[in-house]
């Protein structure tokens, strides 16, 4: 996992609420595409018109936002399907951090598993940053600084954000969760031994007799 410390760059404003993971990456791309190449298909239902050409009106097709490492989004971003491909698609198009008022729980977890930072700021603040970006789309730059837990808007205003300390440490170090958890293998084994006695039915999963 790539460590995340700080990112500065253009921030693409896509403020509609409830952007779902089906829109971020269509399900057929999960079967036909490698993880590394999903970026080409991110938001395809909005990026491309029926004839396959790009829709120049869509924000991520505008030249100033094509390589934006930051996405500004509306509430409940990433709702719907648990597909982790939604995170890989965003990363594949160069997005390192999303700033939104709220996320679906599954998307947020998937993002954190992959080093994509889901920053939570008040909806009014996200709108204000988007307005500053739209006022000077060629020049506006936003910084997301995980070490200092702060977003710096184009006008220099600093907005503090909160993140779970354990998640922050893992992101800063690029640490894999499995390695962390296996350090607690003894505690897990002891818990399971007690649980087998307390809840035997939870562990009885032998194949049933033939019907």
């Amino acid at each position: 996992m790539q460590p995340f410390t700080a990112v500065t760059g253009p921030a693409a404003p896509l403020l509609r609420p409830n952007i779902d993971t089906d829109v971020i990456i269509r399900v057929e791309r999960l079967v036909g595409t490698t993880r590394a190449s999903m970026g080409a298909h991110a938001f395809e239902v909005w990026r491309f018109r029926a004839d396959g050409s790009e829709d120049p009106a869509f924000v991520l097709n505008r030249p100033e936002f094509r390589a934006a490492p930051i996405l500004l989004a509306g509430p409940n971003f990433g709702c719907g399907s648990s597909r982790e491909g939604a995170v890989w698609a965003l990363q594949g198009m160069g997005v390192r951090a999303v700033i939104a008022p709220s996320y679906s729980d599954i998307f947020r977890n998937n993002a954190l598993q992959n080093g994509l930072l889901p920053v939570v700021l008040d909806e009014a603040v996200v709108r204000e940053i988007a307005a500053q970006v739209e006022a000077a789309p060629d020049r506006a730059r936003v910084t997301v600084d995980l070490e200092r837990e702060v977003v710096i808007a184009p006008d220099g205003t600093r907005h503090r954000f909160a993140i779970d300390p354990a998640r922050r440490e893992a992101l800063l170090a690029g640490l894999d969760d499995v390695g962390l958890t296996l350090r607690q293998a003894d505690a897990i084994a002891a818990w399971q031994q007690a649980d087998r006695a307390a809840r035997p039915w939870a562990w009885q999963v032998a194949a049933p007799e033939r019907r």
Binding site: S82, R83, E84, V87, I106, N109, N110, Q113, N114, A166, D177, V178, L180, T181, L182, A185, I188, Q192
Partner: peptide, 19 residues
């Protein structure tokens, strides 16, 4: 009962737990 992404799924298969 709850849904997870494939990374958390792999974590649970390897450790029988989730964080």
């Amino acid at each position: 009962a709850f849904g997870v992404g494939s990374s958390e799924l792999a974590h649970a298969l390897a450790t029988q737990t989730l964080r």
